[in-house]
Design a protein around this nucleic acid. Structure first.
Lengths: 139, 139
DNA sequence: AATCATTTTGCAACAAAGTTGCATTATTTC
DNA sequence: GAAATAATGCAACTTTGTTGCAAAATGATT
């Protein structure tokens, strides 16, 4: 069962403000990962740019959202799944997909990152896999 | 056998200039991936910032270098291997490693990206895998 | 529900990263 | 070596992200 923005903020011990609720709601209803700019556009003339930056920072620290690496150098954020929030530490072990057609980036929550054998002397802490191509909607 | 910067520029049909040779030499002797800023520092007071941007852009288009996605939002570039340059289209099918200690990013040329099965309706064109952790030198 | 301590927000100012147009200079081509 | 072409440096600008601080909102306490 899906939590509301207020509930998520509460369980992350963040004070509940209009800005945070609004931004979290945007994430909750977004089908894809969002860049800072996407959020800025959706909050047009509502909140300061700086507030959005700080809100995203706070969400990141609390593990509500995670960043998705990209070659185009735009930081995109997506909601972590519930398990991730509850357990307190991240295990976003899923593949991210970036569509060349529509430009959207989404989490393939059901697609686990396959394991990889590194050369001797390397210790892995985190693995990211970003697949680009054509998504379901654009095919 | 290793090509010189001049030879690489020639075979990519780029005119041979001091700036391009210098920047390409930096890549040829670098053990790790380089950000724009790294190059700027190594070219201190030699070339304009804009020239470096345009040179990197040209190298990218010719497939001499490739970008490496990162969560920290810094674009890093690394040489493509010879096969990649010769064949004209990229197949950088190797894992990238980013060290949390020294901050350096390197290509694990010998470590191929494992295949992954995407959900129905998704068509993959390119796959990136970035592993972060502790590298050989920092362990 | 009023008060007070604590957070959060908006503003201004700034820093860093990246882009564009244009005149000058260097490289190719013949 | 001269003409055509391409690359460079400079200035100006846009976008992205950060910091300090005063004003406003939130949460805890009574």
């Amino acid at each position: 069962m899906k939590k509301t923005s207020g509930e998520i903020l509460k369980s992350s011990s963040l004070s509940i403000t209009d800005g945070r609720k609004k931004i979290l709601d945007i994430f909750l209803s977004a089908p894809n990962a969002l860049a800072h700019q996407d959020i800025e556009l959706k909050c047009k003339e509502k909140f300061d740019r700086v507030t959005i930056y700080r809100t995203l920072q706070a969400f990141l620290e609390k593990g509500i959202i995670h960043t998705i690496p990209s070659s185009d150098n735009i930081t995109r954020y997506a909601l972590c799944n519930d398990d991730c929030i509850d357990s307190g530490h991240h295990h976003d072990n899923h593949v991210h997909f970036s569509c060349d057609e529509c430009g959207k980036t989404i989490c393939l929550d059901e697609t686990a990152i396959p394991s990889v054998r590194l050369p001797n002397g390397f210790r892995a802490h985190q693995i990211n896999m970003i697949v680009s191509g054509v998504c379901k909607s654009c095919l």
